[in-house]
Amino acid sequence: MNHFAIFAHGKSLDVDALAEQSTLRADKVWRRGELRGAGRYQTSGFLIGLGNGAELTYGAQVQTAFEFLRDNQHQLLALGQFEGVDTFILGVQFNIQLEENTVGFTVDFPARLMEQALKVGVNLVAYVSLIREVCEGDA
Rank of each mutant, 00 (worst) to 15 (best):
V107T: 13
N52C: 03
I6F: 11
L77D: 07
D138Y: 04
T87C: 01
E115T: 11
A65E: 10
E67G: 03
P110Y: 06
N2V: 03
I48D: 04
G80Q: 05
A117M: 05
A26G: 10
A78W: 03
C135L: 07
R36G: 07
A60Y: 09
N52P: 06
T106I: 13
L56I: 08
W30F: 10
G91P: 00
W30Y: 10
R132D: 04
H3P: 00
G37I: 11
R40F: 08
G51Y: 15
L13Q: 07
K11R: 15
Q42G: 12
G37E: 09
T57F: 04
S129I: 01
G49T: 00
I89T: 11
F82W: 02
D16I: 05
D108N: 07
G84E: 01
I6Q: 07
G104P: 15
V122L: 05
A8H: 11
V128C: 11
K28W: 09
M1I: 14
K11G: 15
Q42M: 10
F88E: 01
V85F: 08
F109N: 02
E20A: 12
G37C: 11
G33E: 14
A139V: 13
D71A: 08
T106F: 15
D86Q: 15
G84M: 03
G59N: 12
V103F: 15
W30P: 00
Q97P: 11
N101Y: 05
Q63M: 10
K11C: 11
G51P: 10
I48K: 02
E34N: 14
A117R: 05
E115W: 09
G80A: 00
D27G: 03
D108H: 06
R31N: 09
G39Q: 12
F105I: 08
G37P: 13
L130P: 01
F66A: 06
L98A: 03
A5Y: 12
R40N: 05
G37Y: 14
R25G: 05
P110M: 07
F4G: 01
Q75G: 03
N72D: 10
P110A: 05
F66V: 04
E34A: 13
V92L: 15
N72Y: 10
F68P: 00
F7M: 07
E100R: 13
A60H: 09
T87L: 03
E136G: 02
H9Y: 05
Q42S: 12
N2G: 02
V120G: 11
T87W: 06
F88R: 00
V29N: 09
L79T: 05
G137L: 07
Q21G: 11
Q93N: 00
K28P: 00
L124H: 09
F88A: 00
L79D: 03
R31I: 06
K28D: 06
Q21F: 04
D108E: 06
A17S: 15
A19K: 15
A26R: 13
G10I: 01
E100C: 03
E136D: 05
A126V: 04
E136S: 04
A111H: 09
G10S: 02
Y58L: 06
L69A: 01
P110L: 06
A60I: 02
K119W: 04
I48F: 07
L50Q: 13
G33Y: 15
G137D: 11
G49D: 01
A8F: 14
E67A: 08
R31G: 03
A54K: 15
L113F: 01
F68H: 01
A126C: 05
